[in-house]
C-alpha cells in the first residue's frame, strides 16, 4: 500500500437528517460523534423512573444520546457542578431501575475538557452554566456557530422496544426522592 494523503474516511454512515437539539452542547457533541463516525440517536427513548400509587408515571428520564454500536446512553449537562444534584439523582434511579442500561453522564467539566482538546474552549465557556434543556431554542447539529434559533420540530424517535424495567415494589419506593 502506498501513502495516500488526505484519504477520505471509509465505512462512514452517519445520520443525514439532523434532529433539533435542546442545547448547543448537544449539537456540538453530535458533530463530534459524526466526525468520528460513531452512530447516534437523539433522545430515542424515555425511561419512566417514578410512578404514583395509581401506577402513573410522574417522572421520566430521556438521555440525550444513544450510541447503538456501543450500546451506550449519553446524557450531557452544562450546568455547574454544584447544580447537577438533581440530574445525578435521576441517573442513580435510572441505573437502579434499569440495571442493564449503560449510561454515562457527561458533565460540564467533561465537555469543557474535550473542547479544550479540540481547541474550542471558547464555545464550552460560552455554554457553561446554562440550562440543559431549552425547548424554545432548539438547535440544529449542522448549523454553523453561533447556532440560530429554529422553530420547534418533532424529534424522530425510532420505534424501539420498551426497555426492560423494574417497577417499584412498594408505594414508598414509588414516592422516594420526590
Amino acid at each position: 500500500m502506498t501513502a495516500d494523503a488526505s484519504t477520505k474516511a471509509p465505512e462512514l454512515d452517519v445520520p443525514t437528517a439532523a434532529p433539533v437539539f435542546a442545547h448547543a452542547s448537544e449539537a456540538e457533541m453530535a458533530r463530534i460523534l459524526d466526525f468520528y463516525a460513531v452512530r447516534w440517536e437523539y433522545e430515542p427513548r424515555t425511561f419512566p423512573i417514578l410512578w404514583n400509587l395509581d401506577g402513573a408515571v410522574v417522572e421520566s428520564f430521556s438521555p440525550d444520546f444513544y450510541l447503538p454500536e456501543l450500546d451506550l446512553y449519553l446524557e450531557m449537562t452544562t450546568l455547574k457542578q454544584r447544580l447537577v444534584r438533581k440530574k445525578n439523582r435521576k441517573l442513580r434511579r435510572l441505573r437502579g431501575l434499569y440495571p442493564d442500561i449503560r449510561i454515562k453522564l457527561f458533565y460540564a467539566r467533561d465537555f469543557r475538557a474535550i473542547m479544550l482538546k479540540y481547541g474550542r474552549l471558547a464555545l464550552a465557556d460560552s455554554l457553561s452554566g446554562t440550562l440543559g434543556q431549552v425547548p424554545s431554542e432548539r438547535l440544529q447539529a449542522d448549523a454553523p456557530l453561533p447556532l440560530p434559533i429554529t422553530p420547534p420540530a418533532p424529534v424522530v424517535r425510532p420505534a424501539t422496544g420498551e426497555p426492560r424495567r423494574r417497577r417499584p415494589r412498594t408505594a414508598q419506593e414509588a414516592y422516594v426522592d420526590r
Binding site: 500500500m1 502506498t2 501513502a3 495516500d4 494523503a5 488526505s6 484519504t7 477520505k8 474516511a9 462512514l12 452517519v14 458533530r31 463530534i32 459524526d34 466526525f35 468520528y36 463516525a37 479540540y118 481547541g119 474550542r120 449542522d142
Partner: peptide, 23 residues
C-alpha cells in the same frame, strides 16, 4: 485529522492525513 482542526471544516468527517506506507 482531529475534530476542530483546520482540516475538519470542509467535510466534518475524520480524514486519514497519513496512511500506512506498507501493507
Amino acid at each position: 485529522s482531529s475534530y476542530g482542526g483546520a482540516t475538519t471544516e470542509s467535510s466534518g468527517l475524520v480524514r486519514i492525513l497519513k496512511d500506512l506506507s506498507t501493507s
